[in-house]
């Protein structure tokens, strides 16, 4: 029998889990609570060595992971957001942008680059969640559109790594129209018979899911990533029921026919490289596509 009985429920964290870790040196896996050094985590591509939890990484890490010898040429690197609507909520939008740029050392929520993956020429667009939740505003839409233009012009494969909470509210309808713009460009890419591989990572929701993220010839997903149109909280409030375990996770989407393959981060490059090889345009198709472009 216990001498002191806890009256209220709720404090269940064991002492070991509560231990605080200084930032930057150690990383604790949010899934299995394993502690590893940041260096170890980095060497393992941001994946927990014990349980395989895929932690969020940024565009720089993905570019280094995917491009041969880590060599790539960044496209439209000097583009940044304007404030067309003079949007102010609890903070002015330009102040939010400056703060995000300072803390992330990024210009906006996507970077695009051209290079080779396993010898195949490709344009990669990669979103950064740390920049205002990876939200899609005009810069994200424009950089992805120009990336697709570049792929069409140079006959390259297109890869978009999505990681976003959705549209950027501070750009309102400008942000909404980026969905139409990027999807239209992907239609042109498809007409040029060039491959598009969409990589869905944690999290991919809202307007990004309802545009380029779901339009891949092949949709790849990292394990256990949250992927959906509506956020789980909104769905829960709407249907007034608890959501089933694993709802809107990669494995759930695979089961429902919405993604093709779940790929561990370590296997991302060989998988993409293999796919680019399979989907390389044959000479005949290339000729046809060229004729079509010439006619247009």
């Amino acid at each position: 029998m216990k001498w002191f009985k806890r009256v209220k429920e709720g404090i269940l964290t064991s002492t070991q889990e509560k231990k605080e870790i200084p930032d930057g040196l150690w990383w604790q896996c949010p899934s299995c609570k394993e502690k590893v050094t940041s260096k170890e985590l980095q060497a393992n591509l941001g994946v927990c060595p014990k349980c395989g939890h895929h932690d969020r990484i940024g565009s720089q890490e993905y570019f280094e992971l995917l491009f041969d010898d880590g060599q790539f040429q960044e496209l439209n690197a000097n583009m940044s957001s304007a404030d067309p609507l003079h949007f102010i909520d609890t903070k002015a939008y330009p102040d939010r942008l400056v703060a995000a740029q300072k803390s992330t050392k990024l210009r906006d929520a996507v970077r695009t680059a051209q290079g080779k993956i396993g010898g195949h020429g490709a344009v990669v667009a990669c979103m950064d969640f740390d920049f205002i939740g990876g939200s899609m505003g005009s810069v994200v839409g424009e950089k992805i559109s120009r990336g697709i233009d570049c792929a069409i012009k140079n006959r390259l494969g297109m890869i978009i790594i999505s990681k976003s909470g959705g549209a950027r509210m501070m750009e309102a309808a400008f942000s909404l129209m980026q969905m139409a713009k990027t999807s239209a460009k992907l239609a042109l890419l498809a007409e040029a018979k060039l491959p598009y591989i969409s990589v869905l990572t944690d999290p991919t929701t809202g307007g990004v899911t309802a545009s380029y993220a779901m339009l891949g010839d092949v949709n790849l997903a990292e394990p256990n990533a949250l992927i959906g149109f509506a956020g789980p909280r909104v769905i829960k409030e709407t249907i007034k029921k608890d959501l089933p375990a694993g709802f809107q996770r990669s494995e759930f989407l695979l089961e429902h026919g919405l993604v093709d393959v779940i790929v561990e981060r370590a296997a991302l490059k060989p998988t993409i490289s293999n796919l680019l090889c399979m989907m390389k345009v044959t000479k005949k198709k290339k000729r046809e596509a060229k004729e079509e472009t010439a006619q247009a």
């Binding site: 969905m179 309802a210 909104v234 769905i235 709802f247 429902h256």
Partner: peptide, 17 residues
Amino acid sequence: AYPGLEAEERGQGEAIA
């Protein structure tokens, strides 16, 4: 667009995209 459980299962995002 309806934010429902079945809507997600059947690919709300994909259908719009």
